[in-house]
């Protein structure tokens, strides 16, 4: 699989090299690389990224038709998000669901074409 997009983050540590945070689906593995996916730093970063995603998502899980069968909902729960701290802002909540592609339709109103592509190649 080619490195195509942005799904989650991890730390890649090059032996003898600098420690850097990399997107896991956007980084090729190399010999001598150490990879840490659950350091406190990475857990925090992942949580903060998902929180940003949720600022452009309808927070109506209880009445949503895919409640309980939603990858975004699962992800938010897994990274430990209890609430979104950002005030209401610009969003795309008035958009129609895009059914023109075969990739997962978990009400991703904020999704960019890249992400379904990324999801499809997982």
């Amino acid at each position: 699989m080619a490195p195509v997009g942005f799904r989650s983050v991890e730390v890649a540590l090059q032996a003898g090299g600098p420690r850097r945070t990399k997107a896991s689906c956007h980084t090729l593995m190399e010999p001598g690389m150490f990879i840490y996916t659950e350091t406190p730093e990475i857990q925090k970063l992942r949580k903060n990224i998902v929180e940003l995603v949720l600022t452009d998502h309808p927070l109506d899980c209880l009445t949503c038709e895919v409640n309980g069968n939603c990858e975004l909902q699962d992800t938010a729960a897994r990274v430990g998000i209890r609430k979104v701290r950002y005030p209401d802002g610009e969003n795309h909540l008035d958009r129609e669901k895009d059914l023109s592609h075969p990739y997962p339709h978990f009400r991703p109103v904020e999704m960019h074409p890249v992400l379904p592509l990324c999801a499809g190649l997982r």
Partner: peptide, 25 residues
């Protein structure tokens, strides 16, 4: 728009600063 932090984070940063200037926030 490829990654979430830049695409959404930059807008939220702008909004937070706007809100802090225009409202009691």
């Amino acid at each position: 728009g490829k990654c979430f932090p830049c695409r959404i984070g930059s807008v939220r940063g702008k909004e937070l600063l706007q809100k802090a200037q225009s409202e009691n926030y």
